[in-house]
Amino acid sequence: MKGKNKSTIGVKGAIIDANIKAAVASAQSENYLGNSDHNMYVSGEGQYIYANAEANNGFYLGEDDKIGFIAGGAAEAGGAKGEVSYGITTFGYKLGFTEGACFQCGGVSYRLGAIYDMKKGEVTVQGFGSVGLDVGAKLGGNVTVPLKWLKIIDKIKHKE
């Protein structure tokens, strides 16, 4: 049996990010072709006899150089589950999709968010949702837009 627990509570913002996962067997793979500005990627994850619980809620108020909000949670258990994420990056713009399915499962999950990363100078908007009752599906996506000019303006302000 394999298990994983990750939890953090924000200091400057009001963020709760807690994940507990357990599975008899799990596997994952992440692959991309290209560099950080121009690439195609695909990743996948599978779990066999699993249970997951998540809470991802709150506001980023400068913590980790991020500003924005995230709302999400999950409670899932089942026999078999798999998901694949894929997308492209060109000139710093990222477009990604997530699809998944579960069998002999029950549960629900969702995530919505919009975050500005001050270090990277980019905004990410994401949304995912899944529902399962014996057989289930997951769909979602994310868009990341580079806003390097905001970093330049911030640097100019700090020099004055």
Rank of each mutant, 00 (worst) to 15 (best):
K6C: 02
S7D: 05
S7R: 01
T8C: 12
I9Q: 08
G10N: 07
G10L: 10
G10D: 07
K12F: 15
I16R: 02
I16M: 09
D17A: 14
N19S: 12
I20Q: 03
I20R: 00
K21C: 00
K21E: 04
S26K: 07
Q28M: 11
S29A: 10
E30C: 04
E30A: 09
E30T: 09
E30D: 15
N31V: 04
N35D: 15
N39R: 13
N39Q: 08
Y41H: 09
V42D: 01
E45K: 07
E45G: 06
G46V: 09
G46F: 06
G46Q: 06
Q47W: 06
N56V: 05
N57F: 01
Y60P: 01
L61Y: 00
G62L: 11
G62V: 00
E63F: 05
E63Y: 07
D64K: 13
A71E: 15
G72D: 12
G73E: 02
A74R: 11
E76S: 03
A77H: 12
G79C: 06
A80P: 12
G82P: 11
E83R: 11
Y86L: 09
G92V: 08
G92S: 02
G92T: 07
G92M: 05
Y93V: 06
Y93T: 04
G96V: 11
F97Y: 15
G100M: 10
A101L: 13
F103A: 14
F103P: 01
Q104S: 11
G106K: 06
G107S: 12
G107Y: 03
V108F: 09
I115K: 01
D117I: 06
M118T: 11
M118K: 14
K119N: 14
V123R: 13
V125E: 02
Q126G: 10
F128Y: 08
F128H: 13
F128T: 09
S130N: 08
V131T: 08
L133Q: 06
D134T: 14
A137W: 12
L139F: 15
N142R: 13
N142K: 14
V143W: 06
V143P: 00
P146G: 06
P146I: 07
W149Q: 12
W149C: 05
K151L: 08
K151E: 10
D154Y: 02
K155W: 02
H158I: 13
